[in-house]
């Protein structure tokens, strides 16, 4: 069985935020909710890097462990999904998540946040595939059509990769080997002056 993962290559990401926009558009996500975001570290300094983050579909997900109503489940493809009919909007998953992935449509007094919303790896939810209910609650279900998440599919620099973990690590390993060679060359040239 496949284990679906995202991988974002910091040496390629150019902080164009196209993945964020594509995700919002594809799933018709309400204002204020962002299933994906791009974080830039050391902005404007030497060594600046950007990364696109969303739910990383952890194998041992802290959100699923902490949820007081047990609304999370992992699909056969290793995608972590949740049932909005069971979610009570307590926000514990947001505190537990390392990546800040869970989102809430509201944040007002008396802790009314609405049902949690997060990246589904474009795999919908527990409702019937392609039903209007599913689209309303979770957005488009691309995985059932044999497609990968749109954010990764349309990434211009191919920084954001999505798919089976083995395939992703193969691609990344090749990139690292190539970069290692060029970094070595760069180092040698530096020393030669």
């Amino acid at each position: 069985m496949a284990s679906m993962k995202f991988y974002c290559d910091a040496e390629r990401c150019i902080e164009c935020n196209a993945c964020v926009t594509a995700c919002k558009n594809e799933h018709d996500i309400p204002w204020g909710v962002n299933r994906r975001r791009v974080v830039t570290i050391k902005d404007g300094e030497q060594g600046e890097r950007s990364l696109s983050v969303a739910c990383m579909h952890c194998a041992d997900a802290p959100c699923a462990a902490v949820c007081p109503v047990d609304c999370f489940y992992t699909t056969g493809d290793g995608i972590v999904l949740h049932d909005k009919d069971i979610c009570i909007g307590c926000g514990y998953c947001f505190y537990a998540c390392p990546f800040g992935a869970p989102q809430f449509p509201e944040s007002s007094a008396f802790s009314s946040r609405g049902k949690m919303d997060k990246c589904t790896f474009c795999a919908g939810g527990p409702e019937d595939d392609h039903s209007s209910e599913e689209y309303k609650k979770y957005g488009r279900n691309r995985v059932s059509e044999g497609k990968l998440p749109l954010c990764a599919e349309m990434c211009a620099t191919k920084a954001l990769l999505a798919g089976d973990a083995d395939v992703l690590s193969d691609i990344y390993r090749k990139r690292v080997i190539n970069r290692g060679a060029s970094a070595f060359e760069w180092g040698v040239n530096q020393l030669k002056g």
Partner: peptide, 8 residues
């Protein structure tokens, strides 16, 4: 870091 997405 910083992000174009504003929030907590």
């Amino acid at each position: 870091g910083i992000s174009q997405v504003k929030g907590v």
